[in-house]
Simulated scan of single mutants.
Amino acid sequence: MAQQASMAFALPGGEKSKPSRKRPIDLVHLTRETFGNRALEIEILSLFSRQTCGIVDRLAQANPDERVRLARSLKGSARAIGAFGVAELAEAIEQAPSDSRKVKDLRPVVDDVRDYIAAITR
């Protein structure tokens, strides 16, 4: 099977990339999920970036039941693209929706992911 160019492997040093939860997005995971289709990676990342901003804003204003629903949706999306830090915080909100500190902790992590997406999709 021919190796397809992808975000994880088209970046300098990417050919040696291993799965990493230290980066805002695990590019190896993303590549596996998109079967190495760079156009699909960019499309999915752009969509995630646009949607997360609105979700974080809505989480801050939502009642506990709505927070559970929003957090569950965010968790699934974040896991799908390899944004595991966002997924872990979303899961924490899902489990303790009345804890507004968790919602506040989510914003900088989402901002880091969105900045990372902007950098790798230029």
Results as ranks from 00 to 15, higher is better:
24 P>V: 04
24 P>Y: 03
24 P>A: 06
24 P>T: 04
24 P>W: 09
25 I>V: 12
25 I>D: 03
26 D>R: 05
26 D>K: 10
26 D>H: 08
26 D>V: 07
27 L>W: 00
27 L>D: 02
27 L>F: 01
28 V>M: 03
28 V>Y: 00
28 V>L: 01
29 H>R: 05
29 H>E: 09
29 H>G: 04
29 H>S: 07
29 H>L: 11
29 H>W: 08
30 L>G: 07
30 L>T: 08
30 L>D: 10
31 T>Q: 15
31 T>V: 06
31 T>D: 14
32 R>D: 13
32 R>S: 05
32 R>A: 12
33 E>P: 03
33 E>A: 15
33 E>R: 14
33 E>V: 15
34 T>E: 11
34 T>F: 13
34 T>M: 14
34 T>G: 09
35 F>D: 13
35 F>N: 14
35 F>I: 12
36 G>Y: 13
36 G>F: 08
36 G>E: 15
36 G>M: 09
36 G>W: 08
36 G>C: 07
38 R>E: 05
38 R>I: 13
38 R>A: 07
38 R>G: 02
38 R>S: 03
40 L>C: 06
40 L>Q: 12
40 L>T: 13
40 L>F: 14
40 L>V: 11
41 E>V: 05
42 I>P: 05
42 I>E: 11
44 I>H: 03
44 I>V: 15
45 L>C: 12
45 L>M: 14
45 L>K: 07
45 L>R: 08
45 L>P: 06
45 L>F: 10
45 L>Y: 10
46 S>C: 07
46 S>D: 13
47 L>G: 00
47 L>N: 00
47 L>P: 00
47 L>I: 00
48 F>T: 00
48 F>V: 01
48 F>R: 00
48 F>Y: 11
48 F>S: 01
50 R>Q: 14
50 R>P: 02
50 R>G: 02
51 Q>N: 13
51 Q>W: 01
52 T>R: 01
52 T>Q: 06
52 T>Y: 01
52 T>E: 03
52 T>C: 10
53 C>Y: 13
54 G>C: 09
55 I>P: 06
56 V>N: 01
56 V>G: 02
56 V>A: 04
56 V>E: 02
56 V>R: 04
56 V>D: 01
58 R>V: 11
59 L>W: 03
59 L>N: 04
61 Q>S: 04
61 Q>C: 02
61 Q>V: 06
62 A>G: 06
62 A>F: 09
63 N>E: 14
63 N>V: 10
63 N>L: 14
63 N>T: 12
64 P>S: 09
66 E>M: 02
67 R>M: 06
68 V>R: 15
68 V>A: 10
68 V>S: 04
68 V>T: 14
69 R>A: 15
70 L>P: 04
70 L>N: 10
70 L>Q: 05
71 A>T: 09
73 S>Q: 14
74 L>D: 00
